[in-house]
């Protein structure tokens, strides 16, 4: 029925490593895998162009792609369990709309890349806090109210994004906002990548530690409480980690849809719904997937294709296929 967990992990890890090196190799300036390995591991500096391309362009970008992919897949899977709903994604609590508004605001203010990332991160967190606060007002901790609050806050920030687009200068600011919202890794800078990756790794580590308990959240609120779970603490912890991870990912990549929704389903097809296995498997698939998508984005045409367009073009038919086969792991 399902694949053996350990075998799956090893296979997926090998696939990720292979894609990782291949991704460093491909691009407009092709570097052979052989040279990639020599430059990365044996300190070969004879080809100065290749060295420069690898360390300044490819490596940061490849690390960003796999980190963002892993982030969206893990947080999407965690939210699906938390909300007991296989149709939610990492963006359920409005983090992407909030971040979109932050970025649009920073672009309108003619901010630097760093400022755009900072604003995106900040407003992404603000949006989730607003959703969380709103669900608390309608007393009780029901995750259903949290979903609804997320939709409300998300729509509010989407409206603000539209407003920013409406008032933006159509010659330069508007296109920048639109491109940001479509998602891209073209503007990755080494300096801002490192702190982002550290935050993401920290958040994912906490989620990994508590991952078995997401099973119990997925069984229902009364069931979880009967099993001795302090619901408020665990839900807040999972939401906080997911938010920090997703906001960090979005602030460097823009809005990339369909990863957090689709990847967990592929994970469930492989190893079943148990989060003890599902979360690590989703992480590996998500990382590989976004690496491949980003490779396509920067090699398919002479310019750059926005990632959000590609993930949607690949994700939607695949999701349709999952529905058709109806064995994606929910009832």
């Amino acid at each position: 029925m399902h694949w053996n967990y350990k075998t799956t992990l090893i296979v997926l890890l090998c696939v990720l490593i292979a894609i990782f090196f291949a991704s460093i190799s491909v691009g407009r300036y092709v570097i052979s895998i052989d040279s990639v390995l020599k430059i990365l591991f044996f300190g070969d500096r004879s080809d100065s162009t290749a060295t420069l391309v690898i360390f300044n362009v490819r490596l940061p970008r490849v690390i960003a792609a796999l980190t963002v992919g892993a982030s969206l897949a893990v947080t999407g899977a965690a939210f699906q369990g938390l909300f007991k709903n296989p149709l939610v994604s990492s963006y359920q609590l409005g983090v992407s709309s909030g971040a979109g508004f932050g970025a649009a605001l920073a672009i309108t203010l003619a901010g630097s890349t760093l400022m755009i990332q900072g604003y995106a991160f900040f407003f992404g967190i603000i949006a989730v806090l607003a959703s969380f606060a709103m669900s608390r007002i309608y007393k009780g901790s029901s995750t259903l109210t949290l979903i609804l609050s997320g939709i409300i806050v998300g729509s509010f920030f989407s409206a603000l994004v539209s407003l920013m687009q409406y008032i933006a200068d159509p010659r330069d600011t508007l296109p920048s906002i639109v491109f940001w919202l479509m998602g891209s890794l073209a503007s990755i800078r080494v300096s801002s990548l490192l702190p982002t990756v550290i935050v993401i790794v920290a958040g994912i580590t906490v989620l990994m530690l508590v991952r078995w308990r997401i099973n119990i959240l997925a069984m229902g609120e009364d069931e979880a409480r009967s099993l001795g779970i302090n619901l408020r603490v665990l839900v807040s912890l999972v939401v906080a980690c997911c938010t920090i991870v997703t906001a960090s990912a979005v602030c460097i990549s823009g809005v990339i849809g369909w990863v957090g929704l689709v990847i967990p389903h592929i994970g469930r097809m492989l190893v079943g719904p148990d989060y003890k296995k599902l979360l690590p498997v989703s992480l590996l698939i998500g990382a590989s997937y976004l690496l491949v998508i980003d490779d396509i984005a920067r090699t398919l045409i002479s310019g750059e294709l926005p990632l959000g367009i590609l993930t949607a073009l690949v994700g939607t038919p695949f999701f349709g296929y999952l529905l058709w086969k109806a064995k994606a792991g929910w009832s």
Binding site: V210, W212, R213, N215, I229, L234
Partner: peptide
């Protein structure tokens, strides 16, 4: 009780260990 996700019967049964395990522990 309805479950959204198709946990196996054994996976459901072992959830009973939750109160005896630490926050970061798995069964």
């Amino acid at each position: 009780h309805v479950s959204t996700f198709p946990f196996s019967v054994l996976e459901v049964a072992v959830m009973g260990r939750a109160p005896h395990l630490g926050l970061a522990e798995s069964p």
